[in-house]
Structures are given as C-alpha cells and as structure tokens.
C-alpha cells in the first residue's frame, strides 16, 4: 500500500474577484522510500496541493475535496487533534519562503525546541541538544553560538537551513519540501540534497520535492509530476520524462533551460501568459500557448492517460503518440546538437 495516496484533490479559494480553482483534480501516490518531484509553472498549484494535504490552507475562504489517504486515514477529514499529531511528526514540510517562515520575535533555538517538544515529552536540555545536532547537520557554522540568534540575523540561505533542520528534527516518514534549495548556493544545495537522501536511506522516508530546477529533479526524483494550470499534465518516471517527454508544456520547460554547455542570445520561452485560474481557458488549459493546438484542444479537456508503450507514463494531451514521440526526439536531438 502506498504511504500517501492522493485522489482527485481539488482546492479553490474564494476571493473578492471570484473563485480561484488552485488545484483541480490532482491524483498521485508516494511509496515508502520514494521521491516524487513536482515541477510546473509558478502559480500552477504545486504549493497549494501540498498545503491541502497538510490541512494548512486558511479555513475561511477555502474549499477542498477529494482524498489524501495517509496510512489508511483520509487527511482531509481527520479531526484537527489527530492531524496535529501527524503534522511535524509523521509528515513535515519545508516552506518555499524562508525569509518569512520563521517567527521574527523568537530565537531560532526556541522555535526548534518547540518543534521537538510538541511531539516528544523531553526536557529543554534534550530538545536543545537535538536542535543543535540538526543545525550542525544542515551546516550552520558555530551552531552553539547562533542558536540563540533571531531570524533577521541570518541570511536567506541560512534561514532555509534552519527550516530544513526544523522539518527533519522528528525524523518524519514523509518530508514535503517546497523548493527547499532555491535560496541556496549549489554547494550547499548539494549538501542539503545529500542530507535528505541520507534521511531517506536511514529511515525509509518518502520525499515530495517541489522545485523549478530541472537539474535537481533529474538528480533526486524517482517519479515526476508536471503541473500546469492547477492540473497534472504529465506523470512519469524521471528517465521517461527526460527521454520521452509527452506534453508540449514539458517540452517548453526543457527547452527554456539556460545551460552551462550552450550559448544562446535569447532563451526559448513559451509564448503567451500563464492562464488565469479565475477564468481558466476551456478545453486543454495549455491550448492558448501551444504551437500544436488543434480544434479538439479548445473544447475538450484531455484526460490523463497512459501512453501505449509505457503504462506508468501518464500524459494529458490530444496529440497522437507518434507525433509526440517525433517532436520529443527532435527537441532532445536539437539540444544535444547544440551541446555538441
């Protein structure tokens, strides 16, 4: 049985301007010890998907439906008390915005100790020792001295490391990392990713990692979910996704990467603007920006279906598979050629 199974998750926000459908029918599952990468347009609902699973959306203007089954329990309907016991202990989350995710009026140490003591009945001294251990593990220099500092005395990257330490402090079974290394330099990023991998090997934890860095996805994820306009457009193993991408949006993503080995004056960008979730386009949400658009795309929502060759490779596009294989091959070839 999967550790976490998400079925047809939907979340919408009621705003002054109308209803924003931020997540619209997302399904996936995560196994023990597995890493799922989520990539996609900013504003496509990646963070909201994870926040919904954790039950962290503001109650007031949010409605969610669907299921998120965690060890047999639907997280969307569990009682707040039970949910609290799961949060921060079984499932923990690293947030996207390290600068604002720490409380400015408490010291780093106090916030870490709180995280320990909420789930373990230990003394301050033990909790502090554990906090120090984690701060060192994430590479905060002179942790003993800095543990009593306030967040504003830390740089963005250091705050993110503190967030990571806080998320790992109770050895969670599932770690949801929302762009954990965006604020970090590449060498620290490598350290943190190694740390997460070690956690996974030691405790068999599962990881959901949201990132914009396709390099990070390629190197850490087992499976990848590509989101566009609040929906999943492609879901495949990492090799499949990079070797035979099946959705024009995925092609756009791969194509627009600046790379160390290629020189271009302008990057390839996907034409047009990201879709408004207030009034999403009819049919396939990518169609106004897609260069392969057909009549059917404008009216009918493409279903997320397996490809013929690979039943685990799901994609939502009306194009026929032959064309897609051909176009994908062309894209990858052109990138290789430029590189060569």
């Amino acid at each position: 049985m999967a550790l976490l199974e998400v079925k047809d998750l939907r979340t919408s926000f009621h705003t002054e301007d109308g209803i924003v459908g931020a997540v619209d029918g997302v399904s996936f599952s995560v196994e023990k010890g597995q890493t799922l990468g989520i990539v996609g347009e900013s504003g496509s609902g990646k963070s909201v998907t994870c926040l919904t699973i954790m039950g962290l959306n503001a109650k007031r203007n949010t409605t969610s439906s669907g299921e998120a089954i965690w060890k047999g329990k639907n997280l969307l309907t569990t009682k707040p008390r039970e949910l609290r016991e799961i949060r921060g202990n079984d499932i923990s989350m690293i947030f996207q915005d390290p600068m604002t995710s720490l409380n400015p009026v408490h010291t780093i140490g106090k916030q870490l100790i709180e995280a320990v003591q909420l789930h373990r009945d230990v003394s301050n001294r033990v909790a502090r020792a554990r906090s120090l251990e984690l701060l060192k593990a994430v590479g905060i220099p002179y942790a003993e001295r800095r543990i009593d500092d306030y967040p504003h005395q830390f740089s963005g990257g250091m705050r993110q490391r503190v967030m990571i330490a806080m998320a790992l402090i109770n050895d969670p079974d599932l770690l949801i990392a929302d762009e954990p290394t965006t604020a970090l330099d590449v060498t620290t990023q490598a350290q943190i990713l190694t740390l997460m991998k070690r956690l996974q090997e030691e405790f068999g934890s599962a990881i959901i990692i949201i990132t914009h860095d396709l390099g990070v996805v390629a190197e850490t994820a087992d499976d990848v979910l590509v989101m566009y306009g609040a929906r999943v457009v492609e879901h495949a193993s990492v090799e499949e996704l990079f070797n035979r991408p099946q959705h024009p949006y995925t092609w756009g993503l791969i194509g627009s990467l600046p790379r160390l080995d290629i020189d271009v004056e302008r990057l390839i960008q996907i034409p047009g603007q990201p879709p408004s979730l207030l009034r999403p386009p009819r049919g396939c949400r990518f169609h106004p920006r897609c260069s392969y658009v057909m009549e059917v795309c404008k009216t009918t929502v493409p279903e997320l279906l397996p490809t013929q060759r690979e039943p685990d490779h799901l994609q939502a596009c009306h194009l026929d598979e032959e064309t897609k294989d051909r176009e994908a091959a062309k894209l990858l070839e052109s990138m290789m050629a430029e590189a060569g």
Binding site: M54, L102, P104
Partner: peptide, 14 residues
C-alpha cells in the same frame, strides 16, 4: 494569522 510563520507553527503540529 496570514503570516507564513504561523503556517510554519501549524505545520509543526502546534
């Protein structure tokens, strides 16, 4: 209540 650090506290299970 809308601040990110409040969300962090909730995520800790407080």
């Amino acid at each position: 209540l809308n601040e990110d650090f409040v969300r962090t506290a909730r995520a800790k299970g407080a």
